[in-house]
């Protein structure tokens, strides 16, 4: 059955702050409020990876949050897209190169759409999400492995055990 067109009409959002300054988060929340009203696209902020299609990540990935990020990403069922909101999430932004930061989100999970701006504007976010919808519509790819913190998911017959995707923090050698 071709249900893909409907998928585009009901993207549920999970919003995760990987260590940003909260600027972008406030903009995201503004999108949900009456002025920008992204519920008209059928979006709901679920706050729950298991029922979400779009992961909106803000902020650079700090060392404390990288495992959580991968874990949350692993808990989202496919198809799913990741939108990196703001300069931090895209590249590390003003925090790039700091002792506690790892840089952009794409170091750990595959990112589909990058939204620029420090704080990114609601219009940009909406634009990014709408672009993400197009990707979501095509996307039906398998579970992606984490790029750096990777342990391959254990596959028994056709099922994946995602319980141990994000490995625990081992001191990474400093570059």
């Amino acid at each position: 059955m071709k249900l893909a067109t409907y998928r585009k009409k009901s993207p549920w959002i999970l919003h995760y702050n990987a260590g940003g300054c909260n600027g972008c988060d406030i903009e995201i929340l503004a999108c949900l409020a009456p002025k920008y009203d992204i519920e008209r696209f059928g979006m709901i902020n679920t706050g729950n990876p298991k029922q979400s299609d779009i992961l909106l990540v803000t902020g650079p990935v700090t060392k404390r949050s990288r495992e959580r990020l991968v874990e949350i990403y692993a808990q989202m069922p496919e198809p799913k897209v990741v939108v990196a909101c703001g300069a931090c999430a895209s590249t590390g932004g003003v925090f790039r190169g700091m002792y506690n930061c790892e840089g952009g989100v794409d170091q750990f999970i595959p990112v589909d759409v990058y939204v620029c701006g420090c704080g990114t504007r609601p219009e940009q976010i909406i634009d990014g999400v709408v672009q993400a919808l197009a990707i979501l519509e095509q996307k039906n790819k398998d579970m992606e492995a984490s790029v750096r913190l990777n342990t391959q998911p254990i596959a028994e017959d056709e099922q994946l055990n995602r319980r141990h995707v994000a490995a625990s923090i081992t001191p990474t050698p400093t570059v």
């Binding site: 995760y16 729950n48 990876p49 298991k50 949050s65 495992e67 959580r68 990020l69 874990e71 949350i72 692993a74 808990q75 069922p77 579970m143 017959d157 056709e158 099922q159 994946l160 055990n161 995602r162 319980r163 994000a166 625990s168």
Partner: peptide
């Protein structure tokens, strides 16, 4: 259930 992924309980990403 067979052919279904297993996932961890949601605890805000904590394990």
């Amino acid at each position: 259930f067979r052919h279904v992924d297993r996932t961890r309980e949601y605890m805000c990403g904590e394990k």
